[in-house]
Every structure is written in structure tokens, then in C-alpha cells.
Design a binder for these strands. Structure first.
Lengths: 189, 189
DNA sequence: CGTGATTACTCATAATGTTGAGTATGCTCA
DNA sequence: TGAGCATACTCAACATTATGAGTAATCACG
């Protein structure tokens, strides 16, 4: 029952179609949850059936018709219940860490390459997140925005995503460097 | 096929029973993967059937008998294959982030409490990880250990876990503080 | 002497997440 | 003019993870 609440939380940004949500939950932007389009469409159907969101059809001329969903009062109440229930601990679960853990028994080259690739991906996300944060806070500085802006939830979670990616980029870069030195693999992996 | 490789990587530390692995993959220690005992026992059975690990029974007088597993050559080869295949991106997937994302539409108290609780949990993990790192490197400093120690994979992944938890503790603390100020909830939540 | 924690493991089922294959239309760019 | 991309969504099958309920012995605590 977790995607359920992630979708509700995302819909607080305003009415949205499955397709738009799918983009938001995809690799690029998902700073607080990740899901594939198929899951989202399914979840939206269930949420509507349960009365937690309501959809309205939008007939389009030039594009396929779509349905825009928004959170109902029952949905808000459900989110409130969710927020009060105890959160389960979050874990890192990452293929790349498994590979690094085993690196002493493997040929390091592939691992180094993947660390460097991951660092680049993280750098791209950092860029996206920084732009988003800047756009959100507008002219005021961060402190001022956080104390008086009218919607800070998305900002706060994006901050977390940003720091996570910065940490990822740093660790991947440093780890790749250490392994390169140890195993004499050139920098131009 | 991911737990599979996590188990293989964990067994590189040396022969281990399902029970011991279960502790290592549990909340406290799992700095590179997380799994429940039931999953591990199942996976160990499959790994043995596939010849990637081999078990040997140890008959104990005072405790139930157990089976210790170690990685075979085929298992090592499988890990090598895994390391060379491209890693799928890692995502944060955390209930608490969902709650923070939605906090503007909720009563903030419960969210603040959970942020503070999470910060404490993270602090405890930081402690565990720091001790582990210190024990691993022994007398030499980190740089020296990383360039000449004989097994650095576990050290590197634990570093990642450490930083992740530090980031968690910082962000949770700061976020709780911001929300406390905004919503006038006392520090003694 | 019995309550609860630790060691050591198993089985079944439910919930979640991933993969693959479709359907359909229209827009843009070469 | 046709290849590829964006919009917009659906269905089915599979893989992975999580949950709940047991079994059974020993040990430490009061």
C-alpha cells in the first residue's frame, strides 16, 4: 500500500493524467518514489474505485483523450491516516553496491566503468533537481522560502533527492578513483 | 536475480549459515542490501541447487544443527557475469519522503515525530558503521587501508552506507526543525 | 520453574514490481 | 512520404519481496 500514497501525494500538486504521472515517476524526475506507467494506471483505477481520487475525462481534438485525476476528501483523509501510521525503514538496494562489495574477487574494470557511468547519471539528476529547486523558490532565498512559502513538501523532498544524488556522485567518483589506482586501470575507462 | 548476487557477495566474507546471513541482511547491518530470513533460506537452497554455493552440515550439541555455505567457482563466475552486466539505476523508495511530500496538506505533527525518530535510527546506524570501518582498517588510516588493504569491497560499501545515514540524519533533523517552526509544534514532540 | 530471548530453519500465501506486447492518433523532420 | 517520437492508455504473465504462522531446542533471568 505504498505506491497508493505516493500517487495521492503526487496528485496534491494538482490534477494530473496517468501519462503525466508516469513521466513524474520515471527515472528522471522521481525524487521521492519510482514506478512504471503500468503500475500507475492500475493504481489510478483502484484509487478511483475506492473513491480516494476522482477523474474527469478531457476530450482532445488533436491528441488521444485523457482523464485528469484529483484527490478527494476521502483521499486526503487516507493520506492523513498514512502519515500517522509508522513509517517502515528505508533501505538502499542497489546492484552497484553489490558489485563493489564483491570487487576484490572480480576483475575491477567493469565495476569502475559502472561507477563512472553512475556518477554521470547522478550529475544529470543534480542538475535537474537544482533547476527545480530554483524555480520553486523564485527570487527569495531558501531560508525565506522554507519559512514562508506556501507549499514546501515537494521542495523538501527534492532537497533530499538532491543530496542523495550528490552523495552518489561523490562516492562513485571517489570509489572509481580508488579502484583505478589499486588495479591500474586507466582513467579513460 | 538480485538477492542472488547479494548473497553470493556476502558469502565472500567467508562461510556462513542462513541464520548468520539473515542477521547481516537485517535492518541493523544491511549496508548494501536488505532481505528477510525467509527469502535468504529460499535463495540459499536455490543457489546450492544451481551449484553456485556449497553447503556443509555442522552438527552442534547445544544448538540446532546448521549448514554453512561458501561460494563455488561457478558462483564466482556468476558474480563476474553479474558485475559485467549493466546495473539498473537505484531509486529512493521511502514512506517518509511520501509523507513529507504531502505535509502541506496534512497535520504536521506525526510527520515531524517520524522525522525525528528516523534521525535517531540513522544516528544509531552511523555509530555501528563507524565502528565497523574502524575495526576493518585497524591501525592504518583510511587512505592507506584503501590503497593497500587486501579486501576493501565491504569497506567501500559500508562507507556508502555511512554517508547515506549521515545524509538521512541531517536531512531529517533539518526538515523536522523547519516544520516545527512553521507549524508551531514544540521541540518535545 | 516458567517467561522470554537466541539459535536455526520451513512452508504457504499475499502484495508488489517488472517485462513484454499491444492499440491508436498526430506531429515533426528529413 | 515515411520513420520516429510524443501522447494516452490497456492487458497478461512473470519475478521478486513481504507477511504470517510454525517447529524445536537451549539458555539466562528472576
Amino acid at each position: 500500500m505504498a505506491l497508493r500514497h505516493a500517487v495521492l501525494a503526487a496528485l496534491l500538486d494538482g490534477e494530473s493524467s496517468g501519462y503525466e504521472l508516469a513521466k513524474a515517476f520515471d527515472a528522471g524526475m522521481a525524487n521521492f518514489w519510482h514506478a512504471l506507467p503500468q503500475q500507475l494506471y492500475l493504481e489510478l483505477t483502484k484509487l478511483e474505485k475506492d473513491g480516494l481520487i476522482q477523474g474527469r475525462a478531457v476530450i482532445q481534438e488533436t491528441r488521444p483523450n485523457k482523464r485528469l485525476f484529483s484527490v478527494t476528501d476521502a483521499g486526503l483523509a487516507e493520506l492523513e491516516r498514512f502519515a500517522e501510521s509508522s513509517a517502515k525503514p528505508a533501505f538502499i538496494r542497489d546492484d552497484l553496491l553489490v558489485k563493489v562489495r564483491a570487487v576484490d574477487s572480480l576483475s575491477a574494470k567493469a565495476v569502475i566503468e559502472q561507477l563512472e557511468e553512475r556518477a554521470l547519471i547522478a550529475a544529470a539528476k543534480i542538475d535537474i533537481f537544482e533547476r527545480y529547486l530554483h524555480r520553486q523558490r523564485g527570487d527569495v532565498d531558501e531560508q525565506a522560502f522554507l519559512s514562508s512559502g506556501d507549499r514546501i513538501g515537494p521542495y523538501l523532498t527534492c532537497m533530499r533527492g538532491l543530496r542523495f544524488e550528490q552523495e552518489t556522485a561523490d562516492w562513485c567518483g571517489q570509489t572509481a578513483q580508488i579502484l583505478r589506482v589499486r588495479y591500474g586501470v586507466g582513467a579513460d575507462a
